[in-house]
Write a protein that binds this DNA or RNA. Structure first.
Lengths: 172, 172
DNA sequence: GGTGACCAACTAACCAGTTGGTTGCACATG
DNA sequence: CATGTGCAACCAACTGGTTAGTTGGTCACC
């Protein structure tokens, strides 16, 4: 029908993969969810694995730049990432699945590498750190955010405030 | 042969599940790895899902108490957990799989709940915090450790030192 | 003789990927 | 205007391999 079939397939696949992972997902179910035909999936994406990678690539930008980086306000940045993660749990799950089932595919995506490099550079400019220090600081902040994302406290405002304070301490 | 067949099955299953997850694991492969017979798996554990849960229960203690909690030295505790995680990556993967594929099974395990409560109590005793503050502090420290575990820096000693410093800042 | 173990084959369902045949639309060619 | 060619999509059935779980028969040891 519509000309947006690949789009619908990608969205349906993102949902299915987020829920069940690569091994647990079923191509027939993706087709059904997309309101599309199974062969369209193979025509556009080749295989189940390639479809999974295509989904990751499709969503990566959304993940990397949904929250604009702010080197001058790392605590606020951290809280905004936490909010984004909590508002988009399926994206977080998608990333976790990806880490477990397709190691080292994402790390090689140029978009991901460049985004990281840009953040480190911005941090250096804002704080005068050397490259390694900036990299490590960013790693700690993101690590903390990810850890909190996986196990947020019962009181969301409290969790947010705690994260803000923790990052403030880290950046000195 | 030996009378430790259930033990061998559990160990083999832990390896297989850590590598491939619940959906990706194959029962035949587990039997082969265990040097045991497939029906022994079903005789002892009932089904693939139940076997997965049994593996988690079997390993949970190892995970909870491998690193003795030290309320008076949280930074050292954090670093020791990091070292443990890095030395046992398959345990970390097992936990990640479990979180994705069997949500809320682990959280209800009494061993896990009790272990957490004991840590919070020890923290309160050592620091005079109220219960919520202790709980939140513990959550932050563990969150940071988990985050760092997922993406440790290239220089392990540096990562360790950074984590130690970060937790020191958090505990004030 | 009961128990724990092995082997091998089996079933019944499932699942990734394929094929053949059909419909409807867009756009050109005569 | 009519015809036809190609494309995107549909449906449905099929192939071939895989997989959880079962069964029946055998061996060895206590």
């Amino acid at each position: 029908m519509a000309a947006d079939t690949p789009r619908r397939i990608l969205d349906a696949a993102a949902d299915e993969f987020a829920e069940r992972g690569l091994a647990g997902a079923r191509v027939d179910r993706i087709a059904e969810r997309a309101g599309a035909n199974k062969q369209r999936i193979y025509a556009y994406f080749g295989s189940k694995d390639q479809l999974f990678d295509a989904v990751i690539e499709d969503r990566i930008e959304q993940l990397l730049d949904a929250v604009p980086f702010d080197a001058a306000d790392l605590p606020g940045y951290a809280v905004r990432i936490l909010d984004f993660n909590l508002a988009h749990p399926s994206l977080v799950r998608l990333l976790l699945w990806h880490n477990l089932e397709r190691p080292a595919v994402l790390a090689r995506l140029p978009q991901s590498v460049e985004s990281h490099a840009r953040k480190v550079a911005a941090l250096r400019a804002a704080r005068g750190d050397d490259e390694w220090a900036a990299d490590r600081l960013l790693g700690q902040v993101l690590g903390l955010v990810h850890g909190v994302t996986l196990a947020p406290g019962p009181d969301l405002d409290q969790t947010r405030a705690d994260l803000h304070r923790a990052v403030s301490l880290l950046v000195g």
